[in-house]
């Protein structure tokens, strides 16, 4: 099963603020029917309440909410910013890649996070994600 679909990838994203960027990354999940709009609202609330801890690598933010906030199908979206924005993180700002996660249950969540972690901790793969203009190429990285 593909957690990431081409329709959930935006490689020329524009956002003014962190909240805008999370909103737009979340909206990609809504468009592919993986989450309900309430889930996106919850992701933003988590960010504004708990803070920029979701920026877990240099330039990489992983916004997410709880399954009961409106997740329907496990998956992720990828919103790449043409101009990075500040999320208020002390060491990993500014953010250029926002991967919104929709976790439905523990098993699918674990598989998805393992895949994401394997891709994003690989410097070559991360470099492709940061530079490619081909959404298919991004999807393929998550298939390997």
């Amino acid at each position: 099963m593909d957690f990431l679909q081409v329709e959930a990838i935006e490689l020329n994203g524009q956002a003014e603020t962190a909240v805008d960027a999370i909103w737009l990354a979340g909206d990609l999940l809504v468009q592919v029917k993986k989450v309900k709009p309430t889930y996106v609202e919850a992701m933003i609330k988590n960010f504004t309440d708990i803070g920029p801890y979701i920026v877990i690598g240099p330039g990489i933010a992983i916004p997410h909410a709880r399954p009961e906030d409106g997740a329907v199908i496990p998956g992720l979206s990828m919103f790449r910013l043409s101009t990075p924005v500040s999320f208020g993180h002390a060491s990993n700002d500014p953010v250029s890649l926002v991967c919104a996660l929709a976790g439905v249950d523990e098993t699918s969540h674990l598989m998805m996070l393992k895949q994401i972690s394997q891709v994003l901790s690989n410097k070559d793969k991360l470099n492709i994600i940061k530079t490619t203009n081909d959404v298919e190429e991004v999807v393929r990285l998550f298939r390997q």
Partner: peptide, 9 residues
């Protein structure tokens, strides 16, 4: 923050 996503990674 939530004990679900980033802490699992």
């Amino acid at each position: 923050g939530l004990g679900q996503g980033t802490s699992l990674i």
